[in-house]
Design a protein around this nucleic acid. Sequence first.
DNA 1: ATATTGGTTCTTTTTAAAAAGAACCAATAT
DNA 2: ATATTGGTTCTTTTTAAAAAGAACCAATAT
Lengths: 153, 153
Amino acid sequence: MEQYRAKIEEHADVLEKMGFSPVGARIYIYLLYAPDHQSTFDDLVNYFKVSKSAISNGLKYLETIKLIISKTMHGQRKRYFKMDLEANTGADFAIARLNQMRNMLEDILQSRKEDKDRQELQDLITFYKMMAIEYPILLERWRRTIAFEKKDD
Amino acid sequence: MEQYRAKIEEHADVLEKMGFSPVGARIYIYLLYAPDHQSTFDDLVNYFKVSKSAISNGLKYLETIKLIISKTMHGQRKRYFKMDLEANTGADFAIARLNQMRNMLEDILQSRKEDKDRQELQDLITFYKMMAIEYPILLERWRRTIAFEKKDD
DNA sequence: ATATTGGTTCTTTTTAAAAAGAACCAATAT
DNA sequence: ATATTGGTTCTTTTTAAAAAGAACCAATAT
């Protein structure tokens, strides 16, 4: 993994701008490069030379937002932290956000007294409704596409 | 606008979790409630009782990400900060992010030496490609939908 | 031509988020 | 039964982001 150090830094910066913490972003990118997209706790501590608590919190965060899963192998206590690649489409997250925005806008539209410019809000709500319907459809199409490609192997 | 104070706080919290600064989030929600979705600089300073610099930076940020535009009226120097509601679909932003993710994953796939688990990365790239194509199509469909509804008025 | 308004920008202070380090705990190893 | 490993959690320190406040500047008002 040493060979990827510069790349990991570079890509982690992008994720930081999307809201990840420095260590969270680095772990994430590390796993994209790692064999089998998995690694262990002390691999990460050693590679990044940061504290155990930083790694622990980084992993916990990534697990909370479902980007990684942790599992144990052949009864050993060591855990493997593995990227869940399908979750990486960010679909759940994106759909949740669409609904959150829609709920917010609907609440605003209801409590708002101004009558003259309701149309724009209404249009925006329509957008979020549409997207929340279409997104899962596209996701499903993607799933079928990759399943189909796999048949040929 | 006094009547919306509690609601503004409530919804601003949601936006803060999406990465907005406290003041940035409040300005944004304020404009969703405001007549004509617009306001002036000192309206905002007075309403939120925060410093001019906080408001200035908040507005600048919202303008940078294209959520609001500022304009001047009948040659007066006072500016009106107005929400750009179509921009609020977040479409440009979403599409930019999709492409950013795809570029990152493609770069990783190329420089990665592990051969055995390239498929998952490839599948993920397919997802981002698909989404970057479909998103603008959905956006366009939404535009036609709302244009069509408007005809009946 | 000078004064005022409507902001912006720069520096300092405050506040919040991230990381460090120590203490701890549960699970397996011996 | 005791020791060690693989982490987590709690408290403190560090670092970064946000806001405050003063100084400033450009545009219009007088």
